[in-house]
Design a binder for these strands. Sequence first.
DNA 1: CATGAATGAGGCTTCATTCAT
DNA 2: AATGAATGAAGCCTCATTCAT
Lengths: 200, 200, 200, 200
Amino acid sequence: MSGTDSKRERILAAALDIFSTQGFANATVQEIAGRAKVGKGTVYTYFPAKEDILTYLLDEGLAHMGQHIGNRIRTVKGSATKLQAILREQLRYFHEHQSLCRLLAREAWGHDYASDSLAQRIRSSYIGMLQEVIEKGIKEGELRALDSETVATALYGMTSIVALYAKDLSCEKALERIEMTLQELFFGGITLSPATMQEA
Amino acid sequence: MSGTDSKRERILAAALDIFSTQGFANATVQEIAGRAKVGKGTVYTYFPAKEDILTYLLDEGLAHMGQHIGNRIRTVKGSATKLQAILREQLRYFHEHQSLCRLLAREAWGHDYASDSLAQRIRSSYIGMLQEVIEKGIKEGELRALDSETVATALYGMTSIVALYAKDLSCEKALERIEMTLQELFFGGITLSPATMQEA
Amino acid sequence: MSGTDSKRERILAAALDIFSTQGFANATVQEIAGRAKVGKGTVYTYFPAKEDILTYLLDEGLAHMGQHIGNRIRTVKGSATKLQAILREQLRYFHEHQSLCRLLAREAWGHDYASDSLAQRIRSSYIGMLQEVIEKGIKEGELRALDSETVATALYGMTSIVALYAKDLSCEKALERIEMTLQELFFGGITLSPATMQEA
Amino acid sequence: MSGTDSKRERILAAALDIFSTQGFANATVQEIAGRAKVGKGTVYTYFPAKEDILTYLLDEGLAHMGQHIGNRIRTVKGSATKLQAILREQLRYFHEHQSLCRLLAREAWGHDYASDSLAQRIRSSYIGMLQEVIEKGIKEGELRALDSETVATALYGMTSIVALYAKDLSCEKALERIEMTLQELFFGGITLSPATMQEA
DNA sequence: CATGAATGAGGCTTCATTCAT
DNA sequence: AATGAATGAAGCCTCATTCAT
């Protein structure tokens, strides 16, 4: 689990670190190479251009996130329960991968003219999945008949922004509390429903 | 509000346009000056540096948004109703000021090393306000006792991301439908509560 | 005649010097700027790219040479006499513009893939002119009926290579002697004529 | 002439191809190795540096050309006839070795500061030979008493430039016609000598 | 005030060369 | 002997900023 620490991996890790903190445009290849402990030229042995590192990180990150969360919820039955699991896993994932989360937030909106492609891809590849779960839940009568696309986007926005802002409260306790709050909010709403309220 | 519509305003408008579409780092002062129909040197008559235009836009934008929404909800009574108004106004504001919204999303996360300041400022100046309203609502028994900071952040995240992703669905109809969905979700939750639920 | 020593002219002069001695590829923009006494960036105010300086020099040089020689021979009557004048002027021109001559010799053969364009242009714009004069001379019975294109090219090759190799013998005397030799050779041939001469 | 056709020869052939079409400076060792079907490192087993390949090619080429032409004219008697043979063989050689011809044209004029050496070497090793033949011819009364150095250089310039420009007319027919033209021109001159002249 | 020509620091990228295998 | 991964020096070009007009 540590032998694959090849140069390529080191470059990617370094780039992720730097891109996510300083932004793609402010990062220099020199710095990436330095942190990865390789020569500047070596970066170009593995990636044709600086931009390609970013593209790779975003693609890979998105795919990894999708797979990771997908795996975690595969066995969960019931749409509501599944959504619950998704919210939890997504929040955790973003929390554990702050860098990716920051990268997605920062660079999603077109770093190269006409490349809203990333936003598009997030929508299609990830939000699309959420939407399906929600629609299934609605059809099966487990969830309210709200516009699924909007709800899915809202869920994504909620968790990502909260995860980003929660970076200060990085102790585990806080995360659990935050998750509970979001679950309550997302499933039950903020209103104090006169009678009862639904469970987590 | 009188005659200062000239150069300074034009520069700011041009910069907002360009920063929000291409990102701060990819924008050139040349291009800003060009779109503002002023000479490149003139930009420096009004702003000490390129970065200061961004700073000003973010500060101003944040303040304007706060004031705008503040004005709209001042007369609204009741915490829940107030929150409802906030959600509506926020969504509309972001929708009408896509550029600012994109700018906040893009540049919030530290465009210069020490400046998580922006995220901080958003939190303190805007999310703080939301938080207060929510806490008041909880105290007054109108809202559920959830962690107010998390809820406020979630509300902010929800609306901003939805507004950003909704740029395609830019017809008014869509916006109303989206707002309704978010209201339902935020106040009532996604779960199909057996009992009741409130309308927008 | 000295006031037009603008930055642009200085850059061109510097580039011509350097390109012709070191070759285009070995020249650095830094060095050009240095010799032109301008900042490195200034070069790019006047030319979009290093390559464009070369292109401009070659185009301009070719045009200038054509005009210069054209002017000198305009009033000369008779094809043979005209050719004589051309040979003289061309040799002198190359001798006085060694740099351009070297540039033409060095960079004519495709410095950018597929751009035999320069060789083509030399052929069409300059050698073409020679060819016409020769053909006219043949038609009028002043010159022998040889293949005009080959003769024109040979004339061009003769003068340019001799001018290049003659750079050591740069005293005026030598040049006159060289010219005379070429005139004799080109018009009369190397064979000791009246009496005998051999067949091909 | 036996088994050494392998790597070293392949590298030289590849380099000649590439240098002559793209120029020395634009060629990469990578590309040379690729075309020679050897590893990049292997090139350095045979040559200390990229530049040395060029040097070798030029030296070798010059020597080979000298020998080749030398062989062909060894048995020819009479200075004029010998010169005739030289012109023919030189033209043919350049035509068949376009690559070398281009290389000589491109890189002769100082690819490295102190190396007018190549031009010098061409002059001494090759043009020198022509000069001797011419001088002998003059002494023996077969040729006109023109400046032999200039004539030799002119002959060299004539044939090389014509050969280069003739690359389009690469059919054998054309070559013969070109050769004949040059022979007529060089030996008889362009002037229509009132008395006699030879036919095509 | 307004302007844009001038500048040079700084970034991305290429590529000759080395060296461990 | 043969290889190609690794490297960093070096070059082209961009662009924020200045300043003389």
